[in-house]
Design a binder for these strands. Sequence first.
RNA 1: GGUCCCAUCGACUAGGGGUUAGGUCGUCACUCUUUCACAGUGAAAACACGGGUUCGAAUCCCGUUGGGACCGCCA
Length: 494
Amino acid sequence: MEILKDVRVRFAPSPTGFVHIGSLRTALFNYFFAKHNNGKNILRIEDTDQTRKVDGAVENLIRVMSSLGIEFDEGPVQAGDHGPYYQSERLSIYRKYSDGLVSIGAAYYAFETPEELDEMRKLQQLEGKQTMYDRRARDLREEDIQKNLEKGIPHVIRLKVPLDEEIRFDDMIKGTIKIDSNIIDDQILIKSDGFPTYHLANVVDDHLMEITHIIRGEEWVTSVPKHIIIYRALGWKIPEMAHVPLILNRDKSKLSKRQGDVAVEDYLKKGYLKESIINFIALLGWNPGEGEEQEFFAIEDLIKKFTLKKVQSSGAVFNVDKLNWMNNEYIKNYDVDKLTELSLPYFAEAGFDISDRGLLKKILTAIRVYLNKLSDISEYLKIFSQEDVEIENEKLIEILNSDSTKKVLSLLSRKIKKLDVVNSDNYKTAIEEVKNETGAKGKLLFKPVRIAITGSENGPELPAVAEILGKEKILHFLKKWIVEDPPEDSPPAV
RNA sequence: GGUCCCAUCGACUAGGGGUUAGGUCGUCACUCUUUCACAGUGAAAACACGGGUUCGAAUCCCGUUGGGACCGCCA
């Protein structure tokens, strides 16, 4: 597989408080691409919107990424020689370039208020026109501009988009894209608070940070022409672009919060393993191709096999069912000791005593096949923690009260009393003996026992449950449903 | 509405001129297990439509339809 040289990519989220699933995939693709090509993966924080600042968002972001095993070569934590990596700390840099653009006539000052612009857009909508800045400030006279600036009238700097030009670029995923420059807005580059907009900051930083490949979400395709205009005005080389298709809701709209969990943290919290999250997300919109039917990939495989060429050009619906399946597969095949460690919080949260790791391990071994996610553990804990069995419903109680059941249960009880310790093997033997001696079999044998011991007619394998519960508990549970025989070892009546 | 992008089973996808259109999730059935699940076997299930090009089109081209994204002093 071809390896590119000197690759530098960046993951450039704006810190909104949580990590979006779509963001994670972009981050993953950047990471795979960088690693695959022995390049550098850079984290840049796009915090130029003062109104959307969220405290702790960056820390959270870094924590989530690192808990998934995604490392950055440069960024707020690692610090490289292309910093600072917070855009809010690069204001003077942007200012320098925006001034430069103004001085060469590629950008201009504009003094409209947000209200005026709103008005303008409303009017355009009424007329059925495309909403777009009408470029009225392009024609401002130099002396008026100076006067306004001196008076301190709030202003923005806008990009002067060249007219009647076809802007085209080659996207590594989408192919050639052409856009008529006349429909491109004179984008604001510097806001009235002095902060740059995404478009300026992005272009400036990608250039200064020597980014070779821009891999980001498809929602950015339509703004690429604006960026190209800036690159050209500044005389900069345009990086390669790869616009990754969107991750979609069930109804095919852009994945959004109202239709389920979109925060990676939510999935982590619910006990989806990082391995399955990464595996699953990576396969959303990418596959190794060439007839390869493998579906399970460790992160190293993904790095080895990832190419932008095999990234899908259409969006992909996020399907929790398949994630559940995949996570369950990982849970089933995980090292039990490690799984036990990972499960601790979920046992604890369910109010289960976690001091006996051996016990937890046994329980996990018995129930892991049922778990789509670790938080499902709580659903299976009841049978292991209850002091008395609570029978699920009337129907089950009836089964327990039948004559044949009584016989089965009392015989089983007697067998178990004779055992020193109950384990899954001798439990099986005991049941076998009960079967032979009572003649009860099938539903008449296993059902009542299960119900008496667990309270439910289905659940994990009974021998395993029996071993976990132990002799005392089983006897205690059985006692309730049997006519007590005279204790065998009671002293003879005097 | 304008611009751009997209189009293979319900979902994720393979295939990219000649295939019985393959796999996975989900669904259903059967087998196994004297529970549920797991596992196994099998089934139903797709090339959006219309024109071209071609001996031959799911595949290439055009159009239609449908879907999506963007159209902010948000990113």
